[in-house]
Design a protein around this nucleic acid. Sequence first.
DNA 1: TGTTATGATCGTAATAGGCT
DNA 2: AGCCTATTACGATCATAACA
Length: 339
Amino acid sequence: MGKTVADIAQEFNLSITTVRFIIGGNAQRYRISAKTEKKVKDYIEKHGLIVNHAARSLKLKKTETLGIIIPRLSNPFFARLIETFEAHCRSLGYQLIFSCSQNNDKEEANLIRMMLSRGVDGLFIACNSKESQQYAIQSVSKPIVFIDRDFGIGKLNSVITDNFGGGYQLAQAILKDNEHELIVFIGDESLPTIASRLAGIEKYCSEHLKKSFKVIKLKGNSAEYGQKGMQTYLKKNSLPRCMVTSSLNILEGCLYAAKNAKLVFNERAIFGTFDYHPMLEFLNNELWVVEQNRQELVQVAFEMMMNMLQSNQDEDISSTLQNNKTFSSNPCLINLNHK
DNA sequence: TGTTATGATCGTAATAGGCT
DNA sequence: AGCCTATTACGATCATAACA
């Protein structure tokens, strides 16, 4: 299990201070004999060392813990993003704690307070709304990097995906050599991610598409909204031959509604969606997917965080906390189940 | 009896100082 | 000079003491 500093001090009849000098790499500076240094180091090599991070944090005024708040873990994109964040965090010696705001502004504010009271050194947040992003900026005096969503407030650090470009490319790919009317199921447009996806699709269609396309706007981004949207659509229409959904959850709901209605998509129907999931490979239809570059998103978000933590330590001036940078990552368009 | 003040506690990191 | 030890702050929490 390892030994504590007190164990080691007792073992060799030394003071705790002496042992700490050796552990801290300051043996020579404090004139600890090479003989003593060696025996302590050998002992730690053999038995291991237990460090009390709570006490260390108390002294150092930093916990080497970072917090991340996302809307929901049931969104596969966020689940995978968390996993990438955690691995990155751990590789740099940081502990990551995460919580879900359940798309609720009040809950998000609570979680911010909770994370701060736990002593996180910095926060990554995927905000629910413009108001909650404003609240975070005003109420948090520690480094924040906003992820996935930037509501355009300005003066903040954010790492987002070029959803407009993604939507544009997706429309381009899906409409090439396709005769059928495009049906777009779009989730909550108040989110900049969703609005940008739709804007990209509309931009391409207005530039290149001669025939009409239909946008079905939903009030939320969960599978339930997708299901309801498709149910309503099916009252007056048959299943789309050319369909885009704004997220995996919306696609899930749409497919579920079709299954419930005992309807089967035409085998030549073509789908487009945002965010990749391995289960998509098992669909029979041709499918285009806009996949976000998770590794890049996480890496850049971390660089921003580390920069702020560093400058915070050096200067200790809260006004320099925010660097006001926005990074936009390019998504990748992939084609699955091509026929 | 109810309120406020003080001190001890945890382990770590850094500084000041002591003993031979 | 060489080698090591004692003391303190850090911050929240709890127990005990000292007030009115």
